[in-house]
Design a binder for these strands. Structure first.
Lengths: 187, 187
DNA sequence: GTCTATAGGAAGATAGAC
DNA sequence: GTCTATCTTCCTATAGAC
């Protein structure tokens, strides 16, 4: 694999595990098996490399979500598939975790791809809820944007609770609790 | 205010804003207006001081939650009061944000008070849901532990989405979406 | 493209004076 | 209890050779 690619992937991993503040250029170089000069030849510095890594992770998150969300089946089926997909729960969300990184939030270049990822996700979920309403699967009282935000929040919050507990259990409880709250098909 | 107290409170603020990895002893000393020697006289180091600060923040979170959760009113009223309480949404949760800090998660002494805080919160919310079931406010099909985890997750995830967006809107959408999903009183 | 050398500053303490 | 000095290592680059 080329150096640039190794640098980006190593940065993705380190950002996921340690965040931006907790990741040093030296650690990236070690993980990518690239030298100091090599890294600074391809990127202006840590920030630019992080930007590339975050964009990549955002694209991967969208693709992975689309796998379940674009399936056939009812709205609830697709949402349930998405919620119950295999996830590395205890590692947290590689995008969501960056929202607690002060240097990421302070730099618009770094925050933008995070914003775009979640904005896309909420819009995509809202579309599916809206489809469910049109099908008569959901009642007219269900607000697509609100419900979409709730679904995305349960996942992000589920990660937080699971990591706090050191166990996937709270994540799974939260997801099941949400699925039970979703309206039954109004056949 | 005494030095120890200023050190703890300054550490609470810095952990909230910058996390553990992003907070240096020097920054704490500056914020607390305390010298190097003073800080190391009262605490063995950054970790011990952080532990004290996290315990304090956890206690404050529990007290604040209890304000709404121990009120009179139906289960849904109390849960809604809790969800809709004034919060500094864009600052995130001072406890939840620490779950993305690698050095906090790696140190059992630091993770413990976080675990305890959320375990308490979920149990407290589950009690209220269980009360709602006994009153006939909620159907027998509602699982208290699941629903409690969902409620806690919506808040934690709401913070994440809001910070990603740089706006409180997603938080408020997620909360409203959840409230709409909670069962109507089965009068 | 990649490597080594160098650099100013911060991180996280420890030691001993006052 | 608090202050200043000192220490080692790491951080984030930049410069210039190969």
């Amino acid at each position: 694999m080329e150096t640039v690619e190794r640098l980006i992937r190593s940065t993705q991993e380190l950002l996921w595990e340690r965040g931006y503040v907790g990741t040093s250029p030296k650690a990236i170089q070690r993980a990518a098996d690239a030298g100091q000069g090599s890294m600074y030849h391809h990127f202006t510095g840590k920030a630019q490399l992080a930007r590339a890594a975050i964009e990549r992770s955002g694209a991967e998150l969208r693709e992975a979500a689309e796998d379940q969300l674009s399936g056939s089946g009812t709205a609830t089926e697709r949402i349930t598939d998405y919620l119950e997909r295999d996830r590395e729960v205890l590692r947290g969300c590689r995008i969501g975790r960056l929202t607690s990184d002060p240097d990421v939030m302070a730099d618009p270049e770094l925050r933008q791809p995070i914003d775009e990822t979640f904005t896309w996700l909420r819009a995509r979920l809202a579309e599916i809820v809206a489809e469910g309403k049109r099908n008569g699967e959901y009642p007219g009282s269900l607000d697509p944007e609100q419900t979409a935000a709730t679904i995305a929040a349960v996942l992000q919050g589920g990660y937080v609770l699971a990591r706090a507990a050191g166990s996937v259990e709270p994540f799974e409880l939260a997801v099941k609790g949400l699925i039970n709250l979703l309206p039954e098909a109004t056949k």
